[in-house]
Simulated scan of single mutants.
Amino acid sequence: MAEKRAVEPRLAARILEPGPLVLVTSLYRAQHNVMTAGWLLPLGFDPPRIGVAIHPGRLTHEFISRSEAFALNVPTIDLLNAVHRCGIESGRDGDKFLTAGLTPTDAAEVEAPLVEECVAHIECGLVERLSLADHDLFVGEVLAVSALDELFSDRWLIDADSPLLHHIAADQYAGLGKTYTARLGEEEE
């Protein structure tokens, strides 16, 4: 195996990426907002909980803290430019739904809007906010989930043209291209 080099500790998150990206939507006092996020983690099955890390300087942080609800919307590669825009612009400067060309639509359980163009949605009620470092971890209890049948059954249906979007770094993104199946006890080919 080739020799490995030391990497700066601040790049540990990039080692764990590329993770799936989401568009986090929130609503406070009739103002909606959408923000790109890649720091996500499942936290439990029963009750179903998910965490998302958000910097305290973000408008989304303020809106979720005040409204105690949010939605995670799973975009596809077709939304690459909109996803990038939602990650680098601030909702304090204007309506990111409008500037990114995204359509807010009603959610089933939370007041935060969903992104109509996304292929899956997870609606969450805020359970806890933990200040752990320079980002806060928002823990949400999953209240409703919806997904496009052609892309999700009990798991993502990945093929060579999988449209799911993953963040690499800065303005670099990737899609998943192939799945692999482990077969224990069989001879390797």
Rank of each mutant, 00 (worst) to 15 (best):
L80H: 06
E62Q: 15
F70H: 00
N73Y: 06
I64S: 02
H84V: 12
L102A: 02
T76M: 08
T99W: 04
S67C: 05
N81D: 14
D78W: 04
N73G: 03
I77P: 01
E89N: 11
H61V: 12
T60V: 08
L72C: 15
I77F: 07
V74P: 00
I64T: 10
S65W: 03
G57K: 07
T105F: 02
R92F: 13
T60I: 08
F63S: 00
A82E: 01
G101V: 12
L72N: 03
G87L: 04
D95Y: 14
D93A: 15
R58A: 01
N81Y: 10
K96P: 12
E62C: 03
C86M: 04
G101P: 07
D78S: 12
N81T: 14
L102W: 01
P75L: 08
S67L: 08
A69L: 03
L80P: 03
I64G: 03
R66E: 10
S65C: 07
T76N: 07
R92G: 13
G87W: 01
A69C: 09
V74E: 00
P104C: 11
T103N: 14
I77N: 08
N81H: 12
A71T: 03
R66P: 06
N81A: 12
S65E: 07
S65F: 11
P104T: 14
F97G: 04
H84G: 04
D106W: 09
R58P: 01
V74R: 01
V83E: 00
L79S: 02
E62W: 11
F97W: 13
L59P: 04
N81K: 13
E89S: 09
H84E: 11
T99I: 09
S90V: 09
A69H: 06
T60G: 00
A69N: 08
T60Y: 02
T60W: 01
D93H: 11
R85A: 08
D78Q: 15
A71M: 02
F70D: 00
A100V: 07
R58M: 01
F63R: 00
F63N: 00
P104I: 13
A82C: 06
N81P: 05
G87Q: 00
T76H: 06
F63T: 00
F70P: 00
L59Y: 04
L102P: 01
L98T: 15
T105W: 04
I77R: 09
A100Y: 01
D93C: 13
T103V: 12
L59N: 08
P75F: 09
V74C: 07
F97S: 10
T103K: 07
H84K: 10
G57Y: 14
H61Q: 12
A82H: 02
S90D: 04
L98W: 10
I77V: 13
S65Y: 04
E89T: 14
T60A: 15
N73T: 10
E89F: 10
E68W: 03
R92A: 15
G94V: 12
L59F: 08
F97V: 10
F70A: 01
A100I: 05
S90H: 08
A69P: 00
I77T: 09
A69T: 06
R58D: 00
G94S: 05
T60H: 02
S65N: 09
R66M: 09
P104M: 04
S65R: 06
